[in-house]
Write a protein that binds this DNA or RNA. Structure first.
Lengths: 335, 335
DNA sequence: CTGTTAGCGCCTTCAC
DNA sequence: GTGAAGGCGCTAACAG
C-alpha cells in the first residue's frame, strides 16, 4: 500500500531527509521558503504519504486510542462509538476498535490485543466491569464507560441512572399508579441494571424484590412472563388498582408489550409503561412511549476528553473518578 | 504503554535478539528446547509483549484492514461492522475504523488517513460511491459494499435490492393494491435507492415518477408530505382504490406512519405498507410491519473474505466483481 | 537554514 | 543452534 519513502523525495528535491521530516512536521521555520515550495510541489506530484508506523516507532507515540465495546450491535454502543470517533478525530487521534459481542472472554482478548498495538490509551465499554483484566489497567491511560466496577480503578463515565429512574418512576406514581413493576434482563450485578433498579426502589419504597420481573435476554419463549403478567393483571381487575411498568431498556420493553398483547392487554388503558432508552420507534408507537433519554454520543465524547487530558498532562491522575452524564425525560402518552 | 524490548529479554535469557525473534515467530526449530523453555518462562515472568508497530515496520505488513463507514449510527452499518470485525478477528486481522457521519468530504479524509496508516487493505461503505477518491483505489487491496458506483472499479458487495423489492411489491399487488407509492429519501443517484426504486417500477409497471414520493432526510416538518398524502387518500375515497406504500427504509417508514397518523389514517385499513429494512420494533407495531430483511453482518463477512483472499493471493484481481447477497422477506400484517 | 547521525523495536539474511 | 549486523521509514538532537 506504500511506495515512496522520505529518502526518495529527499533525493528528488536534493535536500536531506531531516528537512523533509521538518516539512512534514510543520517546522517551516527551519528551511527557506524556496525549499519549502519545492518540497511541497514534489510531494504533490509524487503523491507521497508518510508512513505512520515508522513515525510511531520513532516517536514512540501512536496517537491512537484503542476502544473495546461490549456489543457494537447495540444502538447505545454505536452512538457512543460515534461520539468517540468524532472527538478523537477533532483531537488528532485515530481509533482502533474491538468488539466483544457480549462475551467477557473475548473482551479480555481484545484488551490484550489493544495493549499489544501500542495504543496511547484505552476506552472500554465493558461486558463485565468486574473482570480481573481491568485490574491491569492504569488510570493514567484508560477510561471506562457505562457499566462500572464496584471499586472503580480507572475513571468511569456513567449515566445518571439512579436519579433518572427515581425521577421518572416518581412521576408515574404521581400519575396515580398504585403498583409498579420493574422489568429487566437478569440484573446479575451489572451496575447499570442495579442502579436503575435502585432508582426504582427508591421511588416506590418497595423493600423486597416482589416487584422486580426478570426475563432472560436471549429471547426464547415468554410463557413464564405471560402467566406472570396475567396474574398481575387479574389481580388488578379485582382490586381496581392502576398498575405500571418500568422497563430497563428498549428490548425488554418490546418483550413486555408483546407479552401483554398476547394476553390482550393494551397500554395505557390496562397498564402504564415507561422505559429506559430512547429509540426512534418509540415516537410512532400507538400511544407514544414515554422514556428516559441518554445522550450516548456525549458519553463517548466525555470519555475521550477525559482520556486525552490525562494522556497529555504529566501529573499523576490520582484516584479514579466517576463522571456522571445527565439524562433527559421524553414524555409521551404511554402512562 | 510499553516497556520491555526484545533486547531486554534477550539479555535476561542470555541469547541474542534473533533467537527471541525466532521464538516470537514460532520458529522453534531454530533453537534448542532448553532455550525455548527459558525464553517462554522469561516472557511470562516479565509480561513482555512485542511491539506491533516495530514488527509492522520491519515486515512492512500491518495485518490490519481499514474500514470507512458512511454512518456508524445506522443500524445497518453497525451490523455490517460487527460482521467485519468478527471475520477479521478469525482471520488474524485487526480493524481500524473511521466514520464519515454521512459527509462525503469526511469520507475522503478518512480514506487518506487509512492509507497513511499503512493498512493492508480497505473496506468501504461509501457515503458517495461516485466520489473521485475511489478512483484512486486499487482492486488488489480494496472492497466496497452496499452503495456501488456506476462503473465499479473495485469489487463491491451489494444486497439484492432489485429482486427483493420487485418480489415484495409484486406480492402487495397480488394482495389487491390498485395503486402503489414508493416513498424514499431523495434518490440522488445513490445506487441502493435507485435500485430499490427500479424494483418498484418493475413490479408496478409505472412509466414515470408520479408514484415516487421523496422526503428530505434531515427530519424537519413534514407538512408537504402530509398534504400530499392527504390528497392521495382523498382520491382513494372517491375511487375506492386500495392503495399501498413501500418505504425505502425504516426511518422513512416512521415518517410515513407519523404523517399518516396526523391525517387520521391507519394501516392496514386505510392503506397498506411495507418497508425495506427489518428492525426489531417492526414486530411490535400495532399490526406488525411486513418488510425485507437483509443479513447485514453477512455482508460485512463477505466483504472481508473477498478482501483477504485478494490480499493473500498473488495473482492480479482482474475486473471488479459485483457480489450480491440475498435477502429474505418477513411477512406480517401491515398490508 | 541545512545536513549528519543515531536510534525507535523488531526481522532477516548470513556467518559461525 | 546461535549471534552479528544491516535495515524498515522516520525523528531528533547536534553540528556546521
Amino acid at each position: 500500500m506504500e511506495r515512496l519513502t522520505i529518502k526518495d523525495i529527499a533525493q528528488m528535491v536534493n535536500v536531506s531527509t531531516a528537512t523533509i521530516s521538518n516539512y512534514l512536521n510543520g517546522n517551516y521555520s527551519k528551511m527557506s521558503g524556496k525549499t519549502r515550495n519545492k518540497i511541497e510541489e514534489m510531494i504533490r506530484q509524487t503523491n507521497y504519504v508518510p508512513s505512520t508506523v515508522a513515525r510511531d516507532l520513532a516517536t514512540n507515540d501512536s496517537k491512537t486510542i484503542g476502544v473495546s465495546v461490549a456489543d457494537i450491535t447495540n444502538p447505545f454502543t454505536s452512538a457512543v462509538l460515534s461520539g468517540i470517533y468524532e472527538t478523537c478525530g477533532n483531537l488528532g487521534y485515530t481509533v482502533i476498535f474491538t468488539n466483544a459481542s457480549g462475551d467477557a472472554m473475548q473482551e479480555i482478548e481484545n484488551i490484550n490485543k489493544l495493549k499489544r498495538q501500542e495504543v496511547s490509551g484505552l476506552i472500554i465499554d465493558p461486558v463485565d466491569a468486574q473482570s480481573p483484566i481491568f485490574k491491569t489497567l492504569n488510570n493514567k491511560d484508560a477510561v471506562m464507560l457505562d457499566r462500572e466496577a464496584v471499586n472503580i480503578q480507572v475513571d468511569t463515565v456513567v449515566t445518571d441512572n439512579f436519579n433518572a429512574v427515581t425521577h421518572f418512576v416518581s412521576m408515574m406514581k404521581e400519575n396515580g399508579y398504585d403498583e409498579m413493576y420493574f422489568i429487566t434482563w437478569p440484573i446479575e450485578q451489572i451496575s447499570t441494571r442495579v442502579t436503575r433498579y435502585q432508582g426504582f426502589l427508591d421511588a416506590t419504597g418497595y423493600k423486597n424484590d416482589d416487584h422486580c420481573i426478570e426475563i432472560s435476554n436471549p429471547g426464547g419463549d415468554d410463557e413464564a412472563l405471560k402467566t406472570q403478567l396475567a396474574e398481575i393483571m387479574e389481580d388488578r381487575e379485582e382490586t381496581g388498582k392502576k398498575i405500571g411498568f418500568f422497563s430497563m431498556n428498549g428490548k425488554v420493553l418490546i418483550r413486555l408489550i408483546q407479552a401483554m398483547r398476547s394476553i390482550n392487554k393494551q397500554y395505557p388503558f390496562d397498564y402504564g409503561v415507561g422505559s429506559y432508552e430512547d429509540l426512534d420507534w418509540m415516537g410512532i408507537m400507538k400511544p407514544g412511549i414515554s422514556c428516559i433519554h441518554q445522550d450516548s454520543a456525549h458519553i463517548g465524547e466525555t470519555a475521550v476528553k477525559k482520556l486525552i487530558s490525562k494522556l497529555t498532562s504529566d501529573d499523576e491522575p490520582g484516584k479514579a473518578q466517576r463522571i456522571v452524564v445527565p439524562t433527559t425525560l421524553k414524555l409521551r402518552e404511554s402512562f
